[in-house]
Amino acid sequence: MTGVLPITLEESRKVVQALLYSGKEYICLMKLHGKATEERVKEVLKEFENTIYQRPPLRASVKRRLRTRKIYYNEFLEMDGRNVLFKVGCEGGTYIRKLCFDIGEVLGCGAHMQELRRTRAGPFTENEGIVTLHEVAYWFMEWQEKKNEEILKRFIQPMENSLKLIPKIHVRDSAVDAICHGASLTAPGVLSLETGIEASSMVAILTLKGEAVALAKALASTKEILRMNHGIVAKTERVLMPRGTYPKCWKSGEI
């Protein structure tokens, strides 16, 4: 199985959580075990859209209990005899091998996953900035030889690119270090924010320079935050920036 596999380096591993949460897209070649009409295959693919129930397969890295997953779309691409090619957009943690098996059961003839290519993992797609292992090895050698930073940028992206699909809140310089120490984000620190934030959504807290400070859980919606003058806006969950990057701007209590 091939395709988009975002690799996080050193400190950026902390953004994996955000990546796992942002959805996937695959191109799948499914092999039917018997005859089925194209029309019927298309019908069944549609039946497996929206919320589906899925029990993780025998070889799985999670507990095998029935769980629900969202399928955003199953797009039929082509069919040749018993081979069916389709595109699936789904929530992270959906087992495509299992999806094929279940589609086969509904079709009545049985089916299995033959080939799979991931075309998207969150904001990363196979069309933009994707590199092979060979390219990584090659560009890294080039970088060591020439020490030209442009070479690094050919295969490494800033971790902030992983946060593209998560709503963002930009904060004042003076709020940054407190958040790096684990404090919650309060209303006066907020400079701008994106639409679509709801209480309990995951948000990314960024500086005005666009650096990621932390992942947090919003405690209010975009509308509410815009009206707030004080109080907690988001609870810090994962700090991404080291302490002391920005100056400390809060008063410590007396001991």
Binding site: M1, T2, G3, V4, L5, P6, I7, T8, L9, E10, E11, S12, V15, R118, F124, E126, E128, G129, I130, V131, T132, L133, V136, L152, F155, I156, Q157, P158, M159, N161, S162
Partner: peptide, 8 residues
């Protein structure tokens, strides 16, 4: 602080 979009 980097991420590689790798083609596995």
């Amino acid at each position: 602080y980097g991420v590689i979009n790798l083609d596995k």
